[in-house]
Design a protein around this nucleic acid. Structure first.
Lengths: 234, 234
DNA sequence: CCAATACTGCGATCACTGTTCTCAGTATTA
DNA sequence: TAATACTGAGAACAGTGATCGCAGTATTGG
């Protein structure tokens, strides 16, 4: 049972002093400022001027709050403009906007588990499925397609973010300095790639790459609707 | 400064009773059994018959331990067989084996941050770059390619795992029962997809889909080495 | 109209987390 | 042999998510 099933409040008793939306907004603000780690029950409560225990009147666990946050920012994706009718183009545009949201709220990538789909997420999903209507894909294949699309969104959002956060250093500073130096014989290609790396060859615009890959993957999924289902003996 | 720079032990003083490898092995076991959450300093220490504080002689923080774990299982990827010379085929095969490791150690997907590349990870990277040698890609483009490939691995590993963990229910049980029921008018396509969902249309083998998508993405990256860099006026 | 009911806010508290301090004990080096 | 640099680990700290129980309050059924 997710947050979305539980009623926001009962009918009897005093009116709650706060609302889920209010708490969620505060939590999103805090996450935008200090990352997901800044969203602890205590800190959220403090910002709202109350105690940690009170939050559990609105939310049954921290995970619920994270679900609320994810759905809240999913609502930032613009679903207003009309569809063109070309599934690939429409989905690519949708994915682009979804990626923007991820760039605006980097903590989305740090969520411990894929968030449960809430009302805003349903709107998004409905839109994606509507874009896929002209295709001949099966129902399950359409869901998988959206899943894959979302995966690409998070993938590229992640690389764009870590490139942004490390504008100077080689984007691959993760490999320890010493390790590279110590193993140049065992790993000549890694050494070469790091040496000639980020300076040489203007880094291809990730967003362009994103659009290209999304279109390529989507067309790939359309052409070949299903691997012959009867071909699998076991 | 990552774990890989810090020396495992100093020259003086008594011999350590344990080793990084030993601790790492224990941690991997525990993660395989109980997920990443089961890998707390206290629990790892308990399994090793010591106190939490002692572990900090081998590791400067929990993150170090996670890095060690990731690199340890990266060592499970078989890099022994010869390359064919076809970059797409060689990388596809490599990605397939990497995905197997992710299926064997699902906690890899839960790592809070992309692990720093250790010695085993370097071997893997070197192999991937060697497979890319026949191409005309720039150094940076090659690194991006490997990154994208790894992204696809985690992406498909994730979907395969959550399909495995929910064999019966609609794989999309995340959307709350009530929410779907309550909004069938606002979301007709979602309702339809969930209704006709998992039963109808034999679910396409995810691994086959994986191999197809990997090849497609890779060939896409080869053909079009770089978007004309001078074409961007700003 | 009034008691029963079902709710809200929240202080106190529990179990647990990662991490550091400190200090006794031990092997290596000068 | 003395100085040095290390190891193991108990105790403790700050912070975490979550629960319990109680005082207070609005709604409801009779």
């Amino acid at each position: 049972m997710s947050v979305w099933n539980r009623p926001e409040r009962g009918a009897r008793g005093p009116a709650p002093e706060r609302s889920r939306a209010q708490i969620t907004a505060a939590a999103v603000e805090m996450a935008d400022e200090g990352g997901l780690a800044a969203v602890s029950m205590r800190q959220v409560a403090r910002r709202l001027g109350t105690g940690p225990a009170s939050l559990y009147r609105y939310v049954s666990a921290r995970g619920d709050l994270l679900d609320l946050m994810a759905d809240a920012v999913a609502g930032e994706i613009d679903l207003g403009d009309p569809l063109s009718g070309d599934p690939v183009e429409d989905l690519a545009a949708l994915a682009g906007r979804a990626k923007q949201v991820h760039l605006r709220h980097p903590w989305l990538l740090d969520l411990p588990t894929e968030p449960t789909v809430g009302p805003r997420g349903m709107d998004y999903l409905e839109r994606a499925l509507r874009a896929l209507e002209p295709t001949s894909l099966s129902h399950s294949a359409r869901l998988e397609t959206v899943g894959l699309l979302n995966g690409l969104v998070t993938l590229f959002a992640r690389t764009e973010l870590q490139r942004r956060n490390a504008p100077a250093d080689p984007a691959h500073a993760r490999m320890s300095y010493l390790a590279t130096a110590a193993t140049e014989e065992r790993h000549p290609l890694v050494a070469a790639a790091l040496a000639g790396g980020p300076g040489a060859g203007a880094a291809p615009d990730t967003h362009t790459l994103f659009e290209r890959m999304v279109r390529r993957v989507l067309t790939g999924l359309m052409e070949n609707p299903d691997p012959s289902p009867a071909a699998d003996p076991r």
